[in-house]
């Protein structure tokens, strides 16, 4: 069972079951725990090769035992996500932990990934259970529905879940080249049905100053 202790520490109560967590993110535990590094994120040989090839590196450990284990990483804010058979897309650098029953994998994101400065691939988490996602500052969860499409700054995007189509918008115009750009030259537009997690801070992206 995942719960937050404060906003920057994740506590997981284990009764013989297991969680996947970012390697080295354990800060304390109570009870009996075993920590095992999962080569390739427990995605098998194929997953391992995919991650190596795509550069979407994620070192994950499996924590198993009885008791409570606490996780934290560089005082980042932690957001809990509940999955009910749907799929969560998250950058591997923002992934903290997930129930061991959830499947993780990699997916091609195309230009969106490139615009975020995170590479062309993203991590997917799928199944029934809970996951924990990190952000710089508490993430705002925004609902996207048919009548309310959402546009997000690539640097502030953290994760999304549900059935969403994303398209890449470029506002680069003649004026950008003249040094009079709108400052928001690249944007991701989400349409469909789902949730988008946006952090109150922007990563440095190639489009950061355009």
């Amino acid at each position: 069972m995942f719960r937050l202790q404060g906003s920057k520490v994740l506590a997981v109560d284990l009764t013989g079951d297991a969680v996947k967590a970012k390697n080295g993110s354990m800060v304390a535990y109570d009870g009996q725990m075993s920590f095992k590094k999962l080569s390739g994120g427990g995605e098998g040989l194929r997953g391992m090769v995919t991650r190596r090839l795509t550069g979407e590196q994620m070192t994950v450990m499996e924590v198993k035992g009885h008791g409570t284990c606490w996780f934290a990483d560089r005082a980042a804010e932690i957001n809990l996500v509940t999955l009910r058979g749907d799929r969560l897309y998250v950058e591997s650098s923002n992934f903290l932990a997930a129930d061991a029953g959830l499947r993780t994998g990699t997916e091609f994101t195309g230009l969106r990934g490139a615009s975020q400065g995170n590479g062309l691939f993203t991590t997917t988490v799928e199944g029934h259970g809970q996951a924990a996602v990190m952000s710089d500052g508490p993430a705002v969860v925004l609902r996207v529905s048919a009548q309310y499409p959402l546009t997000v700054d690539p640097g502030a995007y953290v994760a999304h879940q549900g059935n969403l189509r994303q398209s890449f918008q470029s506002g680069v115009t003649f004026r950008t080249l003249m040094g009079e750009g709108g400052g928001e030259a690249f944007q991701i537009r989400f349409e469909g049905d789902g949730l988008v997690y946006v952090q109150p801070s922007e990563r440095n992206t190639i489009a950061g100053d355009v």
């Binding site: 499409p149 546009t151 997000v152 700054d153 502030a156 400052g183 928001e184 946006v198 922007e202």
Partner: peptide, 8 residues
């Protein structure tokens, strides 16, 4: 510049 994070 660059302080917008998202919009509807």
């Amino acid at each position: 510049k660059g302080k917008m994070t998202a919009y509807y």
